[in-house]
Simulated assay, not measured.
Amino acid sequence: MTPGELKRALKARQFPSLLLLYGEERFFLEETLEKLLKLVVPSESSDFNYNLFHGKTARGSEVYDVARTFPVFSSLRLVVVRDVQLLPAAELDKLLPYLQDPVAETVLVLTADKIDGRRKFYQQFKKRGTLVEFKKYYDNQIPAFVKDRAGQNGITFAEPAMALFCKRVGSNLQEIAGELDKLTTYLGDRTVVDVADVQTIVSDTRVDSVFELTDAIGRQDSKRALSLLNRLLADGTAPLVVLAMLARHFRQMWKAHYLLEQRLGKKEVAKGIGINPYFLDGLLQQVRVFPAARYQGIFEQMLEVDLALKSSGAHASALLEQMVLGICQQDQGI
């Protein structure tokens, strides 16, 4: 079952007796759990009909006994086992008999980051229960999520505001939902978010600084580039994170350069590098500054710094400064 199918089933008050929620996208998983609790167990009876276990400390026999207990003053009981992947195999196998004969009045929900499909328990669960995987969202899926979530809050974005918001918030859905709630409160009676609203409420100096740093490097403005690099480090961004963000940005530029040479349109270029077209124009402005011949040298320097950061006792900021200066001076033949 897909997350969308499960959402429709819950809306129709159709609750699977055996449900396994798993995957990297914790936001939707947690949201689904919260919805199940509200729908399956009314607040006035939750003390009697809601049981929560944790995989690290749970005992299979105890979960089995509770799941077989009939609800009190309610039609359903909800039993949740969080992080079931931490439950030892021997304890997990104690639930196998329950899979063969689940109680109709119990909704047994298991959650996990990932599952081992080779285990007998999961093979049996797949045959008799419902599995729903929550996959991690890609960057190019974020604008659709923002638009949908904003609509639930009763607000919409002007197109430039959407581009800036998505650029600043990253891909953590929990953080995105939080920033949207703050924006909604800030707007008051207004319903349309503009650029000024995003600039006021949402900030991500790391993303902005990395983009500005790349721009400064492209213009061989070493003074500006070093200033931006030191700002990132002073703000507490780890050196390896700075390097990873730069490497990701330059990989996108290199791939965009190649796709442009194939005479592809903007939509195809954006799809090819895995970003939303909202973000493309700014990236392409930087792509035009960097000749194709520069990228190999840039990545070689980044690889050297990566190895040095992980293996030597050299000062991290000095290594990054040297790399930035090297990239800035590459076209100047220094």
Rank of each mutant, 00 (worst) to 15 (best):
G151E: 15
S61R: 10
F211P: 00
Q329Y: 08
L19G: 00
P160Y: 11
P160C: 13
S209M: 06
T191G: 10
L78P: 12
G282S: 10
G151D: 01
D116M: 01
I273V: 07
A112H: 02
P71T: 13
R288W: 04
T237Q: 04
G274P: 14
H315S: 15
P88D: 05
Q301D: 14
T156P: 07
S74D: 03
A256R: 02
M1E: 11
F125Q: 06
L52R: 15
P102T: 11
A112R: 11
Q199F: 00
E159G: 04
R8W: 00
A225R: 12
M162K: 11
A90Q: 14
C328F: 01
R263D: 14
G218D: 07
V241H: 09
A150G: 07
G4C: 08
V81Q: 05
H54Y: 15
Q85M: 12
V207W: 00
K38E: 06
A244V: 05
A67M: 02
F53G: 05
M302R: 10
L10P: 09
G282K: 07
A89W: 01
V132C: 13
Q285V: 06
L21P: 06
E304K: 15
A225W: 03
K136I: 07
G55W: 08
R206L: 11
E91T: 09
S45G: 01
A67L: 00
G282I: 09
H257S: 15
R248Q: 03
S227N: 06
V84R: 03
D47F: 10
F211H: 03
Q220I: 02
D197C: 06
L173F: 03
Q329N: 06
N51Y: 14
V66M: 15
K56N: 10
L21W: 00
E34V: 02
F165M: 05
K11G: 07
K271H: 04
L6G: 04
G23Q: 15
T130A: 08
K135Y: 09
A225V: 01
E304Q: 14
Q174F: 08
F145W: 06
D189W: 05
S46T: 05
P16R: 06
L320A: 01
Q252D: 12
R168I: 01
S75M: 08
R190Y: 08
A234V: 12
Q174H: 14
P160Q: 09
E5Q: 10
D116V: 01
Q124V: 11
